[in-house]
Amino acid sequence: MGLYLLKRLGGLLATLVAASIVIFLALEVLPGDAAEMQLGQNATPAQVLALRTELRLNRPAVERYLVWIGGMARGDFGQSYSYEVPVSGLIEQRLQVTIPLAFLAMALTILLALPAGIFAADHHGRPSDVAVSGLTQLGLAIPNFWLAILLVLLFAVALHLFPSGGFPGWNHGLWPGLRALLLPAVSLAAVQAAILTRITRSAVLEVLGEDFVRTARAKGLSRPATLWRHVLRNALISVVTIMGLQFAYLVAGTIVIENVFYLPGLGRLVFQAIANRDLVVVKNAVLLLAAMVMVINFIVDLLYAVIDPRLRISRP
């Protein structure tokens, strides 16, 4: 177990460093001068020179990379050019939307998909299985922004149950914040739940065909008991993989839904920062997103080890 953990942790750190280098180089090789890009065409040469010095563009790339990483390690993410505030505060604010939204959407996804997928597999080939399959087809076919608009029209405009957009922050209490995130979370969860239902169904079906399931039945376990005690945990191995990918997507890829609901999330920040050529924000936010995705992958690796003794304990 210890060795497995150590290896994964080493892998996590190595990928983090690699990602930071890639992000740094990508912004480095962008055509044009970062200072000129930020200031636009109407800047005076004096302004450009001042910004170049501030951004250390006259220093070697290696030094700038190290200063960037060193700053991040101390929690200093630099100053946003377009918002004129420290990047760290900006990102922290945005995370207060993105992280709860991702958790909420993921929770809805799991709550819907695991029971539906297990039920469909258990009723394999029967009408109820076909019905679940049809629903997942529908879930996959509906684009999430379109569902989002439908939900707004119904629950916000017609029924006034939820706000149609915006985010009040968390200082007004838990419920106003949750209320603002619920429709976006449902829009995101619909597709993810459809995907996860299918994955769960096929994972459970695959395990149901294994020899040890027949052994369990031969011991006298009923069908449901076999499902609970022997099938689900085995099926979870492939389900967890997909859940990890989905959570990573929900953290890093919710920009469209954030735009539909005017949510000040991290995806929207990156989008706006790119539009504003605010490279300091782009650089740090993208690295943070990459780091979060890697941490999620690391947690998935940990879960594998918790579920599967073959990863924890090597042969004698």
């Binding site: 294994e210 020899d211 040890f212 052994t215 031969a218 011991k219 006298g220 085995n234 003794p309």
Partner: peptide, 19 residues
């Protein structure tokens, strides 16, 4: 099953739950 009638299967490698 497993009480009055028990069965041993063909494949010992896969007949046990790995977890």
């Amino acid at each position: 099953r497993g009480n009055r009638i028990a069965m041993i299967f063909q494949e010992p490698m896969t007949a046990l739950n790995p977890l």
